[in-house]
Design a binder for these strands. Structure first.
Lengths: 215, 215
DNA sequence: TTGCAAATGTGAGGATTACTCATATTAATT
DNA sequence: AATTAATATGAGTAATCCTCACATTTGCAA
């Protein structure tokens, strides 16, 4: 687990973290996608710890050497997947919150958002696995923190719109915390049996909606 | 990272997870302590990933083979340390909450508890490291969940005493969630700079005290 | 088309570490 | 003192991530 991740063949940047530049773009892009897709499948099967780089190469029908030409290390594959999932979540959150203009709307949207996230966690083994690793791996945690800040800012915007008098810094801190605690709640909920998990999520929802209301 | 941890030479149980039984108890007990202490030092220096079993053996001045006689795998050392830290925390929480009898007392005690925990997290690199790994390792997570349930039950007891009308199951669920979110907040707070971490903890405290008052 | 240089592909092998096991040593017991 | 049981030892095994010297393909100029 090392530094930064390559997202996709860098387009002329100072070669970033990607080993070599973009060649027959078409082919290399396809390879990157195949690698990520195979990695995803393998993680879904046995978790990212059990995913071996040799398995990924074999399933993607490329040599191990080629694999390392596209991703400098195992962590970079996982980070790339994490970033993609996060981007999905970010869009979801932005969609839900961008246009709320009153407290009722905010609460309704946020409550639904929590449900959607919970459903995603339950349905996506890869996401689950990667998010679990989030705390242990520094690079992953940094990605996670960064995205929580972005999402927190979106929430803070909405709250600020509704209550312009509120202190912006405080709103941002509170919103960031809410995003992180939301993730923690999801991780917790999927670690226990379904009924208890549901109850925990419900409890969290109640707590957060009140926090947003009261402030 | 495998199954269950040995705590200390098992006293005649069906040999549990410990390789061999208790011998010249004195010596073996000392060895276990020395191993744990050296492991602690090494984790404080570079984190548990960087801690090599060969280093532990060397620092403890025993052979690698002996090390594996006391701890069946690397994870078991870490789990043992985790359980010891948790036991400390459990005592702390029980002390603070056992005798509260009204809401003001509960809020005051819990607020102080949060501060104490935060201070511990800031001061104890080993605890930090182990707790960070909590999410990634299944056995560690199970230990963590188990202890959060115990602590949650203590909190639920206190709340139940204060408000006997409240539904016990709901209190327990809420208290368990609070304990887990508290941990999440600590992990978060130490991942950002000190000022922001302080603000996050303060925010969490506010949120939780209100939850206990209202919820 | 042909030939050459640059870009990619390849997989045997290096390097690191958790962990094992046959053997040596020490302690307990008779 | 002899025998048996308990424990210590560390060279060696196994599992994996990753590298690198060399083979192959591609792009391009003549």
């Amino acid at each position: 687990m090392n530094e930064i991740a390559p997202i996709v063949p860098a387009s002329g940047d100072k070669e970033a973290t990607m080993p070599r530049k973009e060649p027959t773009q078409r082919r290399s892009k396809e390879r990157v996608e195949r690698i990520l897709s195979c990695a995803s499948t393998l993680i879904a099967q046995g978790g990212s710890d059990a995913m071996r780089m040799s398995d990924v190469a074999e399933m993607a029908e490329i040599s191990i050497g080629s694999l390392y030409q596209y991703f400098p290390d195992k962590g970079s594959i996982i980070r790339t997947l994490a970033e993609r999932y996060n981007a999905l979540g970010r869009d979801c959150i932005a969609d839900a919150l961008q246009n709320v203009s009153d407290m009722n709307g905010l609460q309704a949207s946020f409550a639904e958002l929590i449900d959607v996230y919970y459903a995603m966690f339950l349905a996506e083994p890869v996401m689950r696995d990667i998010w679990s690793g989030t705390q242990a791996d520094k690079a992953l945690r940094d990605i996670d923190l960064h995205d929580s800040r972005l999402n927190g800012a979106v929430l803070a915007d909405a709250r600020s719109r509704i209550n312009p008098a509120a202190d912006r810094a405080a709103l941002e801190n509170s919103s960031f915390l809410i995003m992180q605690l939301g993730e923690a709640t999801m991780r917790l909920a999927i670690s226990v049996d379904r009924a208890e998990g549901d109850a925990l999520v419900k409890n969290f929802k109640r707590m957060v909606l009140r926090e947003m209301l009261v402030g």
